[in-house]
Amino acid sequence: MSVFSDWDILRNLLLAARWTVVLSLIAFAGGATVGLLLTMMQVSGRTLLVRFTRLYIELFQGTPLLMQLFLVFFGLSLMGLEVSAWFAAALALTLFSSAYLTEIWRGCIESIPRGQWEASRCLGLSYFEIMRHIILPQALKVAIAPTVGFSVQIVKGTALASIIGFVELTKAGTMLNNATFEPFKVFGMVALLYFLLCYPLSVASRKLERKLNVAR
């Protein structure tokens, strides 16, 4: 049973961490795309679109990510769609992160004083011109720090994909713990690897925020 040296444990964890990174990137890209769409709908001012986005955010922020994963994984299959653990995890994390990113980005856009809208209107700019030239450039700046900050939540969220059998860092950890039974060491290493992935993002987010505050 003790065919695992410390190096074997670390090597396997590092290999599995690749999938944590890949899944995080996919989830972030997916979440950002859907989130952007939803943010546009949210600030469009059309009652129906705004209501839909609100409901969407309410649903995905008000239910556990774990349940969303289960529902996507088993639910889509019942509808006849073949879903792998990969696809299910990526989709669930996309839905989850888009809800939070929409909320963050809407806040950023709304943080731009209303007066600017009115001033731009007076200058005869159209809705899209105002968005494109006045609001978005400023909102984007405000959005960077919290977006980077939220990416930490995505990386941590991928850990739950282990429960539907996706072999990433956490799943590899439980498998290795089962094979070696050294939980203190194995989960300690797993935690350390996550920390190494997340901490730089946290620090970057904070630095960006500080820089922005000084600039203002």
Binding site: V3, F4, N12, V167, M175, N178
Partner: peptide, 14 residues
């Protein structure tokens, strides 16, 4: 299974 030796467990390459 991968967590139920000797029916199924993982080797050192997982």
């Amino acid at each position: 299974p991968q967590d139920f030796p000797p029916f199924g467990s993982v080797g050192s390459d997982l």
